[in-house]
Design a binder for these strands. Structure first.
Lengths: 229, 229
DNA sequence: GGCAAGGAATGTGCATACACCTTCGCCACG
DNA sequence: CGTGGCGAAGGTGTATGCACATTCCTTGCC
């Protein structure tokens, strides 16, 4: 007997919990790309055996967050600059598709919620509340994903978002980024409220293009210093 | 003892092989949606223990081909009509994005290849060569995916294509479908050759809309008679 | 005769054991 | 001093055992 004491709550949440924890750390940048993830080490850390660890790694691998070469240790997926650019680009296309569909399909309630959130965020911009704006921004995009009324499309865009999020996080630190973001959101909201699908798609593409550009600065830095939270 | 004799070729292909075999059967309809897949049974069938079976089921689950409720047997994912519609729709959006980028980025060589393939397919339409046209159609769309010069976007669209392919296969049997398909392709090719991104995207959307509609007839049938290859 | 409680039967979740693969350091040899 | 091979150490792939969950069928009770 070695293992301390796992409650043995057979609710089937163990693996998911581990996968979430690891995904969070990868997405947050705590686990840098290229970090080796030995099954034994992870098992010890979470107090479980290798079997559920393998399952969790399988999930992360399916999400594209880790690579799992045969007979070798898994590692946090290293992303080339090219790949990252592609992911941002795909992100833009997917969100643009969401916006186009959302402009045509959102219910009145959904439109109101989107507008309310957006108008409320103006105060956060004025206050320079970076953290709060970031959260509002997240919800804003989430409403877009839901607004397209396509679960499959939403899943695709959320998956992509998760994969680029480590590189996206710090963009709001750039001076004037909050204001610019809000203005771009404004164009999106206006287009959606008036039901102009193409304009909405175009506005989203423009928005994500600047997000991509703003994030690029941090991407190039990511090699030299180890990400310090 | 018990287990006959697995070559013990540790090439890491065992799990992938099982996953592929099962995925094929699901995609072909041999395994009907809702079919229960017990780990023990599959293990016996493939001559392996439950451990690799679980891994394979994990892959299939990640691909969305099977569902795996906790503490219960896995089952072939039942696809609702709604979900399938969403997948076709997303397919259209993704391919439209590919086309827009392709119109702007394809090299002269790629444009020529696309046009050559397309012009060559005209003869297949006239001859009513369904099988051959189907293959050409596949290559045509493949060239679009490559033409966008984004590996990530290509991966997304290919994954989606694989998931809808079982329902897409039979569309060309509809009378006049070949001609219509070729005409739609023609609009796409023209737009791309003249570098008109928006027109290309629009043409692809229109094309996939009719593909979706043409496939829908077979979808509704899929419940009653078992698909006979 | 219907219904609910209980208990095999079946199946999954996790731990552990073992075989194989990969890697890395050490040492002999050129 | 560099280089190639060899052996041990560490890591993954798979098998198997056991604890718990679910399911279904039986059986006692009304």
């Amino acid at each position: 007997m070695t293992r301390p004491k796992r409650p043995l709550v057979r609710s089937g949440t163990t693996v998911e919990e581990m996968a979430r924890a690891l995904a969070d750390e990868i997405v947050r940048g705590t686990l840098a790309p290229g970090t080796k993830l030995g099954e034994g080490g992870l098992g010890e850390r979470f107090g479980v055996s290798r079997t559920p660890v393998r399952e969790a790694l399988g999930h992360l691998s399916a999400m594209g967050l880790v690579e799992r070469p045969p007979n070798r240790r898994a590692m946090v997926a290293p992303i080339t600059d090219r790949r990252l650019t592609e992911m941002f680009e795909a992100m833009g296309e997917l969100e643009a598709s969401c916006a186009r569909l959302a402009a045509a399909r959102m219910t009145a309630g959904e439109r109101n919620a989107l507008d309310a959130l957006h108008q409320g965020a103006r105060a956060l911009v004025r206050a320079g509340a970076q953290e709060a704006y970031e959260a509002a921004n997240s919800r804003f995009h989430g409403l877009l994903y839901e607004g397209c009324h396509s679960g499959y499309l939403r899943d695709l865009v959320v998956a992509t978002r998760n994969r680029v999020s480590p590189f996206r996080r710090a963009q709001f630190r750039l001076p004037g980024r909050l204001e610019k973001s809000w203005d771009e959101h404004d164009a999106i909201v206006r287009a959606i409220l008036r039901g102009d699908s193409e304009a909405a798609a175009q506005a989203v593409r423009a928005h994500l293009f600047t997000v991509s550009a703003a994030s690029a600065a941090f991407v190039t830095d990511r090699h030299a210093p180890p990400p310090k939270e």
